[in-house]
Amino acid sequence: MSLTCAQLEDVAAELALGTVSGAERAAALDHVAGCAACRNLVDQLARAADSLLLLAPEAEPPPGFESRVLSRITPAARPRRERRRRVLVGVAAAALVAGLSGAGVAAMVDDDRRAADIRTALTIADDGRWTCRAVVYGDDPTWLVVSLDRTDDLSAAFSVEAFRSGQAGPVTVGTLTIEQGHGSLATAIQLPAGELETVRVLDARGQVRYTMRF
C-alpha cells in the first residue's frame, strides 16, 4: 500500500518516534523513500524525537554491567591478533548488513584494503540484521569464528560443520553454545581458509538452522 503525502504527514510523528510497526511502518518508509519533502519532514521530527531521549532518568546499572559488556567486546582470553581482526570484520560486516535485506541471504565480504585475508559469510534476517556469521582467516592455523546473535533469549547448543570445495561430506567443527540468544565458537580448523565453501549450524535434532556460503 502506498501512502499519499497527507497520509504520511499523519503518521510522520509516530514514525520519527519509532512507535509505528508492521505494515503501517513499511508503507510509510516506502513513501518516504520516494518523496524528498516527506523525508525531510520525518528527518526534522526525528531530531526533535531524539532530543526527548535526553530526558530519560539516569540509573545505575546492576553490578558487573561494565565487565559483562566488555567481555562481549574484548574478551581477555582472545589473542591480540584475533581481537584486532574481529574488529575489522565487525566493521565490514556492519557495512554489508546496512546494504542488504531479505531472508536467507548469504553473502561474502572481501575488503581487500582492510582485511585482505578475512572472509565473512552471513545469514541475514528479514529486518536486515545478521543472525549468524562465519568468519575465516589465516592458513597456519586457519581460524573459524561462528557467531549467533538471535533476538530471543534462547540458551542452547548447536553443532557446526564445514564443507570444503570439491568435497561432498562435511567436516565437524565443534559446538556453538549460546546463552540468551548470543554466543560464539572460535576454533582452528584443518582447512585452508580459501577452500572453505560453506558453514552450517545445526540444532540438537540435527536440523540445519543456518547456512553461510562463502
Partner: peptide
C-alpha cells in the same frame, strides 16, 4: 571501551529501564 561504557551506561540503562 571501558571509558565509553562508563560515560554512557547510566543514561543507556536508565532509558532502557
Amino acid at each position: 571501551a571501558a571509558a565509553f561504557i562508563r560515560r554512557y551506561q547510566g543514561r543507556v540503562y536508565g532509558l532502557a529501564r
